[in-house]
Every structure is written in structure tokens, then in C-alpha cells.
Design a protein around this nucleic acid. Structure first.
Lengths: 150, 150
DNA sequence: GTGGCTGCAAAACATTTGCACCTGT
DNA sequence: ACAGGTGCAAATGTTTTGCAGCCAC
């Protein structure tokens, strides 16, 4: 068994979830594909599972993703579409910049913005728990924009 | 005819939409209720229409809201729930602070955050078009928190 | 007159749930 | 053994669409 699998088993145990084949498969799938895809919809994952002959139902994908979010293994984003996308939580939380033309996503983290967010919340009498920040725009350099040519 | 209605007719004409009864009704409804409700779901509006005996179908509500968003009369927000809420655009764009316990929403606008957003986008080669920023937390002063007691 | 608008019902989607069976501990 | 997990199909909730008739321009 790979070292990655071993780590994932411990991860599941640590967060109090049983070590089952669908959960390990989904976890590995997201880790293995993180270079090509940072943000997965439930459907994305389901299709990837089908491709690799995994017999995991779509309902299970949703259930597992929800559980993973609850225990902090991943984060749910809403972006502008109607469906949720999920992203593995590595060490750090971050915000996103999305090109509306090509769908490219950059990540960033800005201490100044976060400091202001905290100040503003306090001024309004709110104890800040989390925030969601997305910047939408278009690639300035058109040649580097993989425009999907809609 | 009220002055408000007159203004709304010109607004519709200016954005290139025909002046129809459903559109005027929905527009007036959102304006008249803006003190009690800043953010309307399609269902909210539909129910309010029913209450005032307006014979407007739910499909029309959705179509009108979408058109209003396209021409900039209102803004669609996704917040954390599964359904969209809409807000009339007055002069200024702003961001939101939401109390997760009582659902209270504050609005704010911060020049410093917006300046940083622009800088960060440029640094990543993106021409910033719009952003979405929501701060989630809980009322620090519990006595002022209208906790829905779920 | 006619192209856009509307209401209704049906369809489309993403997501959740009920249930009988299976599996990890 | 048994609580929790799973697959499937059916249900849910929101939003969209097809279509026949209607209305603003």
C-alpha cells in the first residue's frame, strides 16, 4: 500500500470517519489530479471515478464531499455558477481570481485585506468567522488566455 | 400615476425593456419594501405578489429578475445558501457582512480593500471586472442578535 | 401586425433522502 | 453484531424552457 494511502487512512481516522473504499478513492483522486484541476464539482469527481472503473454512486460522492467539508478536509466554493466546487485544504486558506473568459483560477492571500475585513466586521459588531472573496476579470494578455471561444 | 411609476417606466425604456405590468409591479414591490427587506429571493417576490393579488407567474418573476440583472437594475448574490437573492442597485456597489445566527446583513464599502483587489489582480495579469466579497460571522452583542433559534 | 412578453405546465439541474443491503470495527 | 456506509431510485428545491395566446409599440 502506498504511503499516500497510509496517510489518508490516518487522516480519516483522525477526523472520525470510517476508512472505506469510496472515501479513500475520492481522496486519492483529488490529490492525484490537483495539478490539472484544483476545483472539482461533484459531477467532475463522479466522472473521473467512472473513468477509472470505480463503482461509486453519485449520491455517495455528494455524501462524502459534504462530510469532508464538515471535518475540514476540503472547502466548498460557490463561484458564479449554480453548482458547488470543492477544493482540498492544504495548509493555508486563500482567495481566488477567476478569468471569466478561460476559467483560469489564481489563488492569493493578502494580509492587508484580511486585516481590513476584521476591522470592518468589528465596527459593525460582528465577530468575523469566515469570508468569501472572489475577483472576476479577464486575462490582460490575450495570448495567454485559453479562451474557451463560446 | 405616481412619480415613482413614471420614473420606472423611463428606467425600463432606457434599458431597452418593454414597459409591462409585471415588470412595473416587481420594480415597485422591491422599491416599496426596501426598508424591510434588502435581499429578495425569487420566491420572496412571488409570495409578495400573490399577497397583493398580482397575477404574475413564478416563471415571469425569474425571467424579469434575470433581465433586470443583465441590464444592471439589480445584483444577484449567492450568499451561502442554495438560492440566489437579488438586490436593487442604487447608486453604489457594496459588500456584505452576514450574521450566521440571525441572518442580519450589513453593507459596507472599503476603498483600501478595493485598491488591494485591483493591485492583486494586476499582479496576476487579470483585468479586474467585478468582485464578490462576503464576511460571515456572529453578532458580538448577543442581545442585539435576533437569533432565529434553530 | 408582429416580436417581445406572459402564464402554465413540463423539463432540467444540482443535490438530498429513503430504503434494503453491505462492511468496517 | 451492529452502527455506519453505500448504491439505487425516487424525491426535493430552484431555476429554465416550450408553447400557445396576449400586449406593447
Amino acid at each position: 500500500m502506498s504511503e499516500q494511502t497510509q496517510q489518508n487512512k490516518e487522516l480519516l481516522k483522525n477526523v472520525g470517519l470510517k476508512i472505506t473504499e469510496p472515501r479513500l478513492t475520492i481522496l486519492a483522486l483529488m490529490q492525484d489530479n490537483r495539478d490539472v484541476l484544483q476545483h472539482f464539482s461533484a459531477e467532475d469527481i463522479y466522472k473521473l471515478l467512472l473513468e477509472q472503473q470505480s463503482e461509486v454512486g453519485l449520491a455517495t460522492v455528494y455524501r462524502v464531499l459534504n462530510q469532508f467539508e464538515e471535518v475540514g478536509i476540503l472547502t466548498r466554493h460557490l463561484f458564479d455558477s449554480n453548482k458547488a466546487v470543492f477544493e482540498l485544504n492544504y495548509n493555508h486558506q486563500h482567495d481566488h481570481i477567476i478569468c471569466k473568459d478561460c476559467g483560469k483560477v489564481f489563488e492569493f492571500k493578502d494580509a492587508e485585506i484580511e486585516r481590513r475585513q476584521k476591522e470592518i466586521s468589528q465596527k459593525h459588531g460582528i465577530e468575523l468567522e469566515k469570508h468569501s472573496l472572489y475577483l472576476y476579470g479577464t486575462c490582460s494578455d490575450l495570448s495567454s488566455c485559453d479562451n474557451k471561444e463560446k
